[in-house]
Design a protein around this nucleic acid. Structure first.
Length: 388
RNA sequence: GGCGAGGUAGCGAAGCGGUCAAACGCAGCAGACUGUAAAUCUGUCGCCCCAGUGGCUUCGAAGGUUCGAGUCCUUCCCUCGCCA
């Protein structure tokens, strides 16, 4: 373990896939891992207790949203995000880089940073790489992300290069600020987690040479670990897999690799096969609220009329609370009736499915059987495996 | 019994001579969702098909006026309100 409280150890490899242990200031994360998304300090529809019993070991939260409401100062006065939300396990905070993408019509970007008009009250806010580091220091997450520019797809190569190079300059500034905070040179900033680590983010759109250059230069800046950003933004999955394949070999083998914002169960498996250790995605939680459930036999839309009198569990192969206690007919009724329990039960299942899939992936790697796991996974979906 | 208001697609409700198979909302049916402005959004929603500036049948019922009627007239049936 490093002085920061952060460390990583690869315990097994199977092809490019790795199984490992990531140490943070609030505990250990077995990798490959999936991080449920709790943007505003909560995963929508479920309690922390639900998350723990589903096997979540690390949650993701969001700098931009918590800064706007309730404010990082308020959270710092409560002793930091862990204490405020009463989650005593690892936390990662995204920097707000994704909001540069998702709130594109409410912001402008220049060299300084991203100028936002708050979606809550229209007020103006400037998020710089330094500010993102300050906010995250006050939140006290175990892993802070550097501010990047998540570029929309498609982008042409000159634009992608320009954006990637700006992200590199922001990365250097963000890193410098992070180190200054750590060494106590920022009196105005309340540090609520001295063991916080910081990850850099690789950009470069869908251009392999830009991805490779971004990875190399981000590593040169020197972060605790590295993420791949700007994917899962509308490009075809094979393109994303190709970008991952081109990027992971450039990243240090002794540091975790985090593919941001991904993905479908297939995406997770394909990315683990290419050397990814960490994921986050809103898909299991958002789609649960919208009636789409992930099962061992593929996706299922509980809204469909064909489930109205279907007495089977969602996924006979699943042992989650929802599958143990609810029929498809009941879950459909709850959705159609707009019952809050619908969101909760569906979210519980989807997260269980995702986290269980990750556990199976870890076990498969440990036993050196990841490729046969991958093939079996496609077989259960009655689909052809991806071939790169 | 008298006076008044009204009967439009599964429900609610626009429509006041042609551009009406008929706005809009709900319900229904289907789809999308990938570092969460999302319990959201999109499509569809009389019947038929070769799926289109396509065919057919509709706006309480029956008749009528008109080149043309959901829209005007007559009669009837039925709802609701007020008065007896």
């Amino acid at each position: 373990m490093e002085p920061t409280g952060f460390g990583f150890e690869v315990t097994h490899t199977d092809g490019a896939a790795r199984r490992g242990r990531m140490q943070t200031a609030h505990g250990l994360v077995e990798t490959p891992a999936f991080m449920p998304v709790g943007t505003q300090g909560a995963v929508k529809g479920v309690t922390h207790r639900d998350l723990e019993s589903a096997g979540a070991t690390i949650l993701l939260s969001n700098t931009y949203h918590l800064y706007l409401r309730p404010g990082d100062d308020l959270i710092a006065r409560r002793g930091g995000l862990h204490r405020f939300i009463n989650w005593n396990k690892p936390l990662l905070t995204d920097s707000g880089g994704y909001q540069v993408f998702s709130l594109a019509d409410r912001r402008t970007v220049d060299e300084q940073g991203a100028h936002f008009r708050s979606h809550l009250d229209g007020s103006a806010h400037l998020l710089t790489p330094e500010k993102a580091a300050d906010i995250q220091a006050q939140l006290g997450s175990d892993i802070a992300m550097v501010l990047d520019e998540c570029l929309a797809h498609p982008a042409d190569e000159p634009a992608a290069r320009q954006s990637m190079e700006r992200t590199l300059r922001w990365a250097a500034r963000g890193r410098e600020r992070f180190l200054a905070i750590r060494s106590g040179q920022t009196p105005g900033v309340i540090v609520t987690n001295p063991g916080q680590a910081q990850f850099g983010i690789v950009q470069g759109s869908v251009f392999p040479s830009l991805r490779e250059e971004s990875a190399r230069k981000t590593v040169e800046i020197g972060f605790d670990a590295y993420a791949i950003g700007g994917l899962s933004v509308g490009e075809p999955p094979p393109v994303m897999y190709e970008m991952v394949s081109r990027t992971t070999p450039v990243l240090p083998a002794d540091r975790p690799r985090y593919l941001m914002g991904t993905g479908t169960p297939e995406d997770l498996i394909e990315s683990v096969a290419r050397g990814i250790d960490l994921f986050d995605c809103v898909l299991p939680t958002r789609n649960a609220r919208n009636g789409q459930l992930f099962t061992s036999e593929g996706r299922l839309n509980i809204k469909n009329a064909k489930f109205a009198e279907d007495d089977r569990p969602l996924d006979p192969a699943c042992g989650c609370y929802t599958c143990r206690t609810c029929s498809r007919a009941y879950l459909r009724h709850l959705f159609m009736a707009g019952e809050i329990n619908s969101a909760t039960l569906n979210t519980l299942h989807n997260l269980n499915f995702y986290l269980d899939t990750m556990k199976r992936i870890r076990d498969a790697i440990a036993f050196g059987r990841f490729e046969s796991f991958r093939l079996a996974f496609y077989q259960s979906l009655s689909r052809q495996p991806h071939i790169s």
